[in-house]
Structure formats: C-alpha cells, structure tokens
Design a protein around this nucleic acid. Structure first.
Length: 502
RNA sequence: GCUCCGGUAGUGUAGCACGGCCAAUCAUAUCGGACUUUCAAUCCGAUGACUCGGGUUCAAAUCCCGACCGGAGCACCA
C-alpha cells in the first residue's frame, strides 16, 4: 500500500465536508461515573496490520467519548508479542485513525516499556504473588484442573528463577505465573501466566527474550496511564477479570470496564493474519484490495470516514451482538456524497446504436441535478449518429421500441443483432417520450468515449464513459448515472474507477 | 461440557434501572404514489417487531421463574 501524507489522506478520504446537523444525530449513552475533563480512554490495537471495520468500532467509540467528555484518548500499540508485529502496521494504523478523524493526545508503545513490566513482575515476586513455573503445560493443567498447585508454586527462590528466564531457560521451558485462587470456577483463572519466553528479537525493541503476556502489560499500563474507562469487546471479559485481579493485588483503583458485543460482518474477510497471508500468496492485491473490509479498502472505494463513524455511533457500545449491515453503511454514505457527486454517463460492456435521420442537437446536461455545478456539453451532428449504450439496456430492448436518449431525443429501434442496434430519429421532446412510456437511457458518443475499468468487490468491469469524465479530479467521488457511485482512482491512460455502491 | 452474557420489524436503533402516557421511536430496507431528462435525490403513503410459556400486578416490552435461541471465554495471542 502506498504511504500517504496526512494531507493526502484528508484529500482522498474527506473529499466532502462533514455534514452533521442535517438530521437528528443518534448519540451514545453516557458513560458511567464520568466527569467532564476527567475521562481518559485508550484505543489499543495490535500492530499486525491496518485497521478494519471491526477496529473502527473501538476507535470511533473511544474517540466519541473522549470528545464528548473533553477527555484524553491514548493510542497504545499492544506489541508485546514479537511474532505478531508488523513494523509497517504502526503507520498504517495512524493513517487509518487520521482518516477516521480520531484524535489522540498521546501515543504509547508497549514494546518500549518492557522494563516497567519486569519491575512489576519483580514486585509481584517479592510479594509472593507470582512464581516461575517450569512444568510442562500438560502437567500444570493436571494439577490446576484438580484444584492443586503445581510443584513450582511454593519455590522460595522466585527472583533467582525469574533471572534464569532471561539467560538460562529456553522458550517453552518456563513461565511466570500469578498465584490466584486455585479453586476458581473458571479454570483459566487459576494461576494464569503473565510472562513467557519467546526466543525472537522484537522488531522494534530489539534483543529480548522474556515478554509479558497481555494481562500483565495491559493491567500495568491501564493503571500507569490513569485510565478511567476501558471500552473493549466482550471477548475480553475474562481478561478483564484477570486484570482486575492484578489491580486488586496492588491495591489500584480500577477503571470502569464496558464490554460491547460482537459485530458480525458478512461477506468480507476481516482476519488480519489471513488477509496478510492472502496478500503474500497473491489472492489479494494488497491491504486496500476492494474486496476487503479494511478501512484502506473502504476509503479507496469512496466510502466517507464520517459514514463509518455514524454507523459505529448508531451501533453503540451495548453488549448485544449485532449484524453489521452494508446497506445501512451505504445508505449513510450516499447521504453524504450524493449532494456533491458530479454525474457522468457511463455504459458497461457497451453495444453500438446507430441512428439515422438525426437533426443536429447540442446536449447540455447538468453535472448535478440539484446543485449548481455547471454542465457537460455534447454536440450530436445532423444525419447519422453512432452511440454506445450499456449491455443491459441493449438486451432489454427489441425492434420497434422507442427509447429516450437522456438529454437528447427519442429513437425508434429499427433493427437489432448481436453486435448492435440501428434506429431512426423519432422525436425531440421529453413529453413525447413520457407519453409513450419510453425508457430513459444513458449513452456515450462512439469515438469520443473514454474507456473505464471499474473495480468492484464483485469483480472487474469494463465500459465507456463520456469524455467529460476527464474533467473529474483524481480521487473525486462521482456518480455514473443509473449505475452507482465510484471514486476516480486513476486517469493516466484508461480511467480506473472504484465502485462504492449504487 | 463448564462459566458468563444477551434476545424489540429484513438490518440497526429508542423505550427497560423508577411497570401504566407503548395498539412501541427513529433510520435503513421493501412496495406503491407524486415529482423529476438517472433505476439518484426529494416528498407522500404502506409493509413490518417486544423469542416462547408461566408468575406477580388493576396494569408488563419493562419485575420474577423456566424453556428455547444466539454469543463470548475456557492459550506460554491480543
């Protein structure tokens, strides 16, 4: 994916001014125990790839609350697993957030705080609340499931053993465990691990081998950073229990935890790791492949960041699982772009239509039916005229039909074969066409057409657009009449347009 | 299986903590009409939901119990 500057992102994404106010905005529920100016939140992605629709929910909701309460939002990269860090992802995530108009006041890399986690681990060791466990996993589980401590639990040499994790034990041979309740009804709560060995340097922090597990690093940071509220998916509920256990050990004041439900998104690949794999073996063209649910793909298609934001705000932070609806997102997006999108004629998989007996006609169609954006002008000569019409319009018409060429005149189809149709001029006036219930069809002058490649999630389409399309700017979102909204991606050579929705 | 959570129209959402004003809100979707040189937008109209069963109560979407359905977690990932 190309690297974009913040300015470019704004241009590309926020092509249109944000229009709120227009309608009553759905707003979020109040946060519990919150005070204006005192709220501190965080968005904490794992930098293994760019953000997708699922992340957008957490990002937007946190940002909305931070803004509402004039609080702070911290961007915290949870990069404590060296195997799951893509160094490129940090900047991709920042780009996505800037596009979403998410403002963060502080950025934290957990990979720059390992010493802090070691210190707290030491402290837990000193408190007798943690121990180094060298049992094979199966053996530990046997003891745990029986409600008993493993043999390592009562070792007196905690600090020395911990030392050995840094220079002696190999990966998989030892972990640091927290002493919890061995009779806890949830097995995974019993003496859960907080540090482990990974014999691999960290892509950012370099030479390390002892890494904290999230429940330690997250608890430490949520406390150290003074968070008042933690907004996260319900898949983290058990982690919340584990983390509050650590808060209690240290006697820290806990933030308010809010868990929202699953966001089921149909028809699109969201898994970051699978997508990354797919890019590697060529199934996807990149993180912004139009078939993906990444924010990069959405903005490439001309989906406005504000449409994503509004959708997420409407969905809210309740614990119920919800089915994300593309239709609702598209409707929201259309509301934003329709007032600004210039109209152009485009015909897919075109067929020719040759008309005889035409009077000269200068067609002057507005670039927008409502807003005053100027016109596009086409001169149709007297006599014979050759046009291109879309394949669908072509197959829907039969000999003898009368059609209205939008902005021009009415034509009777005189013959039709595989390659095209022929027709004769019938009449000029729109009223006449209405009287005959003739369908309105858009067209492009053959020979003056611009070839267009349309990239859509359903595949690649080819067609022709009127020449005036060349006046549209790169990255501009326009509407192909009777076809749908697209973002103009490339104008060098054949035009490439990325399809958003109808 | 165990632990926890949740179930309002096709989809999303309001209402549920303090039961009556809820024959249930708003948006979107679908259908129909008006307008219109786009199958867009706009305007008008229609369709459509409290998962089920018991209980408490004069009164339940709202409280209680059970069933059913859905989900999450049960890692040396986050």
């Amino acid at each position: 994916m190309n690297r974009l500057s913040p300015e470019e992102i704004r241009e590309r994404g926020a092509a249109f001014p944000r229009e709120r106010a227009a309608k009553k905005e759905k707003t979020l529920e109040d946060l519990p125990l919150s005070e204006r100016g005192a709220v501190k939140l965080r968005f904490a992605p794992n930098p293994s790839g760019p953000l997708h629709l699922g992340h957008a929910r957490a990002a937007v909701l946190n940002d909305e609350y931070a803004k509402r309460y004039e609080g702070d939002l911290i961007l915290r990269f949870e990069d404590t697993d060296p195997r799951r860090v893509d160094p490129e992802a940090y900047e991709m995530i920042r780009e996505d957030l800037r596009w979403l108009d998410v403002d963060w006041s502080e950025e934290v890399l957990q990979s720059s705080r390992f010493d802090l986690y070691y210190r707290y681990a030491d402290e837990l060791l000193g408190m007798g609340a943690a121990y180094v466990c060298t049992c094979p996993p199966e053996s530990f589980k046997r003891h745990r499931d029986a409600g008993k401590g493993c043999p390592c639990r009562d070792k007196k040499t905690g600090h020395e053993e911990f030392e050995k994790m840094f220079n002696e034990y190999r990966e998989g041979e030892a972990v640091l465990r927290l002493k919890t309740d061995l009779s806890h009804r949830n097995l995974s709560m019993r003496d859960f691990p907080i540090m482990r060995i990974v014999e691999r340097p960290h892509p950012i922090a370099g030479d390390r081998r002892v890494y904290p597990l999230m429940n330690l690093s997250v608890a430490v940071d949520d406390h150290e950073l003074g968070l008042t509220h933690v907004l996260r998916g319900k898949d983290h509920i058990l982690n919340t229990h584990k983390q509050t256990f650590i808060f209690d050990l240290f006697g820290w004041e806990k933030p308010q935890y809010i868990h929202y439900g699953l966001l089921k998104i149909e028809g699109v690949m969201l898994s970051t790791s699978e997508t990354g794999q797919g890019i590697k073996d060529g199934r996807y063209t990149g993180w912004d492949d139009v078939r993906l649910g990444t924010l990069a793909a959405l903005r490439r298609r001309g989906i406005q960041a504000d449409a994503v934001r509004r959708t997420m705000v409407e969905v809210g932070a309740k614990p119920t699982d919800i089915s994300f609806s593309w239709k609702n997102l598209y409707a929201m997006n259309k509301e934003l772009i329709d007032p600004h999108a210039k109209r152009y004629s485009f015909v897919e998989s075109p067929k020719t239509l040759t008309i005889r007996g035409c009077p000269e006609k200068v067609v002057k169609n507005p670039l927008h039916p409502v807003s005053d954006m100027g016109f596009r002008e086409i001169r149709l000569p007297e006599g014979e005229v050759r046009l291109l019409i879309g394949k669908e319009d072509f197959s829907a018409r039969a000999e003898g039909d009368v059609i209205r060429l939008m902005g021009a005149y009415n034509v009777r189809i005189s013959s039709k074969d595989q390659s095209g149709m022929e027709g004769v001029f019938h009449s000029m006036e729109l009223e006449e066409a209405r009287r005959m219930k003739a369908p309105l069809i858009n067209w492009v002058v053959a020979g003056e057409d611009v070839p267009v490649k349309v990239l859509s999630p359903e595949g690649e389409r080819h067609g022709a657009a009127e020449k005036a399309l060349l006046h549209a700017g790169k990255d501009e979102v326009v509407q192909f009449e009777r076809y749908g909204f697209v973002r103009i991606e490339d104008k060098n050579g054949a035009v490439v347009a990325v399809f958003a929705h109808r």
